[in-house]
Nucleic acid binder design. Sequence first.
DNA 1: AAAAAATATGTAAAATCGTGCACAAAACCG
DNA 2: CGGTTTTGTGCACGATTTTACATATTTTTT
Lengths: 249, 249
Amino acid sequence: MLREERHRYILNEVKIRNRVLLTDIAQQLAVSEDTVRRDLQQLNERGKLKKVHGGAVANSFHVYTYREDQIYAHEHKIEIATKAIQLLKDGGVLVMGGGTTNLEVARLLPEHLHLTVFTPSLPIAMQLIAHENIETIFVGGRLSHDAQIALGGETIKTFSHVKADYCFMGTGNLDATQGLTEFDWEVVQLKKAMIETAQQVVVLTISEKINSAQRFNVCPVTEIHVLVTELDLYDPRLTEFSAKGLNVL
Amino acid sequence: MLREERHRYILNEVKIRNRVLLTDIAQQLAVSEDTVRRDLQQLNERGKLKKVHGGAVANSFHVYTYREDQIYAHEHKIEIATKAIQLLKDGGVLVMGGGTTNLEVARLLPEHLHLTVFTPSLPIAMQLIAHENIETIFVGGRLSHDAQIALGGETIKTFSHVKADYCFMGTGNLDATQGLTEFDWEVVQLKKAMIETAQQVVVLTISEKINSAQRFNVCPVTEIHVLVTELDLYDPRLTEFSAKGLNVL
DNA sequence: AAAAAATATGTAAAATCGTGCACAAAACCG
DNA sequence: CGGTTTTGTGCACGATTTTACATATTTTTT
């Protein structure tokens, strides 16, 4: 196990759970506690997390990147992407957010499908131009170093002129009462604008992010139309959402 | 086993697994670890992956494209890029076109240099966000499938609001009498708009494209301020340009 | 205050790295 | 074609890094 892998694993855990225990990680990664301790020290020095007695917590000043989680739950993401693609109709207009799950969607889009896609995400745009029948419009703006997406006023303004059939929202935390939440204020603004564009708001998320919340609110659950996860349809974690009228896949 | 084969194998492994162990590869390819180490070093220098202790991990900034192997005249491009970078001043505003030479510029930009860069090129934007001190603004629009850049009216309109110190123009054909030419009408429109933004127009081109012309005219030689090539300063192919007042590097 | 947990520090073994060098293969050149 | 240069590869060796364990110290909990 490379140090880099451990670091990514730890950061991902911190990002999802907001805190980690040193002993847990040592066990999960099958390395000594000393090694984990050193890892946490290094990540602490780089400002990626805040080391505390017994483990570490999220650093409130650090924006957690969307690429640190690219290795994890990859199987699930493929599954989610596959389900989500089935919602799309030929000739439709789609707005895609960032995140690795949406990247998977972009990769798995069938070649024959004709679509017009608006996206502020660099990796997703890169992936989309491989498809001949997809017209990709990159919604430009100032690029965020970590998230690899365009942010800021210009980007949001551009979205306000778009009318789309679907909006595929990627990463973010989803809670039945709090709704969709984010840790980065600028991303919140962008997501709000994207949701506005679309008739159908589709949230793609792995179960880990369900029933957890971040600092800022993007929208209530009622504004979401479809929820796509890797879970079974009758999983108890989903009942609250389907009760609120969401179409759960 | 050719080096090229090993490189491909390694990159493919990285792409699939997101990480590789040096010892594994040495075994799988039946070569010494030293050789693999050197391979990883080279791939690291080219920005294709990130070398770490014990192996390598995927470089999240690298775009794994299909037309990967434009390594043609790669040495020259590095040389040109290095020269061109010396023109830049800290705190400046730069407009970058597409092309592999500009991609090289983006890759080789020194970490300490503070810049604001406007570009319509996806791969270049992808490369630029790796630099902490560079603010990248992607000028969005409809993406061209083959050129991997944004084209069309919106893109051009956005550039009309930009005032830059430099404009780095990449690929294109340059002739002493015809000036800068292109074969794609839409690219011509875009390049014109980009030239308009900048006080200094810098053309980066390998010698092969000098004294050849395409169908459409972008601008006369007189609108170009600096010409950067891999050639010696006193090469006969350049005299015509320096005679017309171009600063030749 | 004592017990438990977590941390800091030192050390030794193992893995990995960098460098110089020899040798072979390939490319170059007259 | 033969000789030279260049390039790539493997090996040896010392230097460095990484890791796990042992032990002492600090912090937290009871």
